[in-house]
Design a protein around this nucleic acid. Sequence first.
RNA 1: GCCCCUGUAGCUCAACGGACAGAGCACCUGCCUUCUAAGCAGUAGGUUGUGGGUUCGAAUCCCGCCAGGGGCGCCA
Length: 590
Amino acid sequence: MFETEQNAIETRIQAFCKENDIPLAALEWKPLPFSGEWGMSTSFFSTAAAESRLGKKIGVATRAQEIASQVKAQLSDVPGIRRVEAVMGYLNLYYDTQEFTRRVVDSVLDKKDRFGSGPATGQLVMIEFSQPNTHKAFHVGHLRGTILGDALCRILEFAGNDIVRANYPGDMGMHVIKWLWGYLKFHNGEEPATDITRWMGEVYAEAAHRIEQDPTFEAELRALYARWDQRDPEIVALWERTRAWSMEGFRQIYAALDVRFDVYYFNSQEEKPGKEMVEDLVRRGIATDDRPNGGAVIVKIDEVLALNKDQYRTAVVLRSDGTALYATEDLALTLHKFRDYPHLAKSVYVVDVRQSLHFTQVFKILEIAGYTQAQKCSHVPYELVTLPGNVVVSSREGTVVLLEDLLREATSRAREEAKKKNPNLTADQLDSVSKAVGLGALKYPILARENTKMVTFDWQTALDFNGQAAPYIQYAHVRCNSILKKAGVDPANLPHSQFANSLEPAEVELIDWLSRFPAEVQRSAAEYKPLVIASIAYDIARAFAGFYDACPVVQAAPDVRDARLRLVAAVKIVLANALSLLGITAPDVM
RNA sequence: GCCCCUGUAGCUCAACGGACAGAGCACCUGCCUUCUAAGCAGUAGGUUGUGGGUUCGAAUCCCGCCAGGGGCGCCA
C-alpha cells in the first residue's frame, strides 16, 4: 500500500549508510505492532551485529538505536509519512492517517471482489485432491482433503495462478471386487434410489463383514477377481454400471459441498500404462524384477542413488503376480498429467500424511528415470480426522460419520438457530441461510487448523456456531449489509473517503486488518495454508464487531457517516472475498 | 532400528527469528426502546514438554532427551 514511500526511504537509508561506512543488512519491513496508528517498521540489529563482528566495541542494542537515530535524521520530509521515530533499535514510520485510510478503503471499493488478488503469474498449477473410492462411503475422513484441496485451488487462483482442479477416484482394486461380490450375492438387480453413496457404502460394509465372518467366501472372491482381471464382459459391464452410480453420488456430494473439478483421472486408466512404465524401468536397470524368485518388481532407491542410509528405501512397483499397485498407477498418472497439460508449472497432490513416503518414492523414481517433470511435483500432506478417543474413521469398522448425515445435521441445526435468531426470514432465505451457515460451520474448523495437525471430530464442536467459527464471520458480513441497507445509499456514489484525523481506535484496528489482506493471500498461497485466510477473516470480523459496537454509522454526523459507510462497504467486500477463498458463502441476511 | 508430524492458558488452537506469547470454548461480572445480542466490554488463567547450543534477540533455527501419533519391499 505504501511501496513507493518504502522504496524512497530504502534508497535514502542505503545512501546514508554508504556515506558513513555502515554495513547495512537487508532491510525487512513489518507493520507497526502497536494499535492505534499505522506505519511500517524496520530494525538495525543485524547491521549493528555485523559491525560488532567486524570489531566494533559497542553493545549491539545500543549501536542499533544509534543507527536508527542517525537514519531518522535523514528522513524528515517523506511525503505520506507523518512522523518518524527511532526507539530501541527500531525505526518506526507513521503513515499519514487520512492518506492511509483513504488508500485502503478506496482501493477495496475500487477493486471489489478482486481486492486482495495478486497479479497474474502466468503459471498453470494442477491440484489433485479428494480421491474418493468408488463403491464405498464418503465420510468425514474424506472431508478434510476435499475441503482443503478446494480452498487451496481458490486461494492459489486468487493469488494469481491458473488452476486445474483434478480428482482421482479409486475405481478398482479389492474393495471394488468385494462390493461386486456382495452385490451379486445379496443385492443382485437392486438399484440405488436416493442417498446413493450411503447405499453403496452399506453394500460394501455388508460384503466386507460377511467375508470376515465366513472365510469360505474368500474363494468366491478370488474367482471374481480373476474374472475381472480377464475382463469378463459381464463383470466389466457391471463394474462400469455400478461405478457410474458412485460417480453420480459423488457428483451430488460435491454439489452440496460447493466443490468442482476440471478433470477426472481414474485409477483403472493408469493400470496399463503403469505396467508398461515398470517394464521400461526393468529394461533400464532401475527396477529389479524379483518375480523369477517369487518376489515382486522393486526399485531399491537408496541403492540406485548409492546412499548409505535408509532414506528413500525400497519401493514395490509391481506385485509378484504382475498386478498393479498404487505406486504402479501413480508413476503413470504423474506423466499423464503433464501430457494433458504440457505447460504445468506445478503438479500438487493433496493427500493425507500417511502417504508421504509413497509420493517421495514415486517422484524420486521418476527423477531417476530422467523425467524432469518430477521436480515440479509436490505432495501437500494433511493429518487425519479422527473420532474422539483417537479412533480412525474406517468404513470397514463401521466407525463412520457419513458426510450425508453430517451435512443434514449441520443444515437442520443451522435452520433451527436461524429461525430462533431471526423470525422474519422468508422460506427461501431460511433455506439459503441454513445451507450457508451449516456448510460454513463444517468447513471453517478444518481450514482454520494447521494442515499437519490432527482434527478430532465431534458433533458438539462441529455444530458450535459461536465464537471463532464461520457463522461469526458470516454474521459480521450480514451486519455490514444491514447498515448499508438501512442507510439506503450506494457507497460507491459517496465522495472519497475523508476520515477525520482522529479516528476511533476501533476504526483504526479495522482498517489495519483490511490493509493486510492482500499480503496474507500471497502468504497463504505460497505456504499452501488456508489457515492464514481463516485467521484473517476472523480477525477482520472481530475488529468489525468492535467497530459495530463503538461507532454508530447511520446516525453519525453526515461527514463521519459517509466515511464510515464507505468503510462498512469495504469490510463487507473483504469479508466476502476471504470467505469465498475458504469456499464459504457470505449471506446478506441471517 | 531408521524417517516424518505433534507438544503453547483447564480444553481446542493462533503467533513471516523481533517490541508486553494472542483468540475461542468453559467459569465469573456487566451491557438489548439504538445499524439483528449468532454480538460487545471486563475479571481470571503461561517457567511455550525438557536439557543444552546458535543469535544482539528463540515458542520459532540446531542437537540430545521425554511423551503422543504416523510411516518403513507386494494396503491404498
